[in-house]
Nucleic acid binder design. Structure first.
Length: 139
DNA sequence: GCCAACGTTGGC
DNA sequence: GCCAACGTTGGC
């Protein structure tokens, strides 16, 4: 099982909206690097849900429920989407500031490749973020 | 194939 | 609102 991080501006689609909807199709990715990661996602993989713009923090954990398929919002077969569902809202959101201040997370794509909207997370990074979120018992 | 111009993302 | 990072476009 792999770990990922998905970015979204809460003004366009927030974690709260995802919880309300129960699931969503992750569409609209128009960047090749991000697209390549979408193609690697498997059902059961987990992803941090990050709010960019307002918030700049990891707010929850989502799960991939459906592997990639052609993005229905594009006629170009280059672009793909996956389906996700909410798993758990973090007890304490983990802010970008915290992440930047944590040595063990210095190599996170969120820090190094700040503009990438779909990124891989290592198992060590995943566990460290959960620790910062006060979710140790949930590991 | 190089590179300048330009557009977009996202933090601050 | 500003600016850095970076992807894309288009001229040569």
């Amino acid at each position: 099982m792999a770990y990922w991080l998905l970015k979204s501006e809460p003004a366009s689609y927030s974690w709260e909206q995802l919880e309300k909807d129960g699931f969503t199709a992750w569409t609209g990715v128009r960047n090749y690097a991000a697209r390549n990661f979408l193609r690697q996602m498997q059902p059961g993989d987990q992803a941090f849900y990050y709010h960019s713009g307002e918030g700049t923090e990891i707010v929850g954990i989502a799960r991939i429920t459906k592997a990639f398929y052609q993005d229905p919002t594009s006629e170009d077969s280059n672009w793909v989407a996956v389906d996700i569902e909410p798993v758990k809202k973090l007890d304490k959101a983990v802010t970008l500031r915290q992440i930047k201040g944590e040595k063990r997370l210095a190599e996170m794509a969120l820090v190094k490749l700040s503009r990438l909207s779909v990124q891989p997370v290592t198992e060590a990074e995943w566990n460290t973020v959960l620790e910062l979120a006060g979710e140790k018992a949930w590991l």
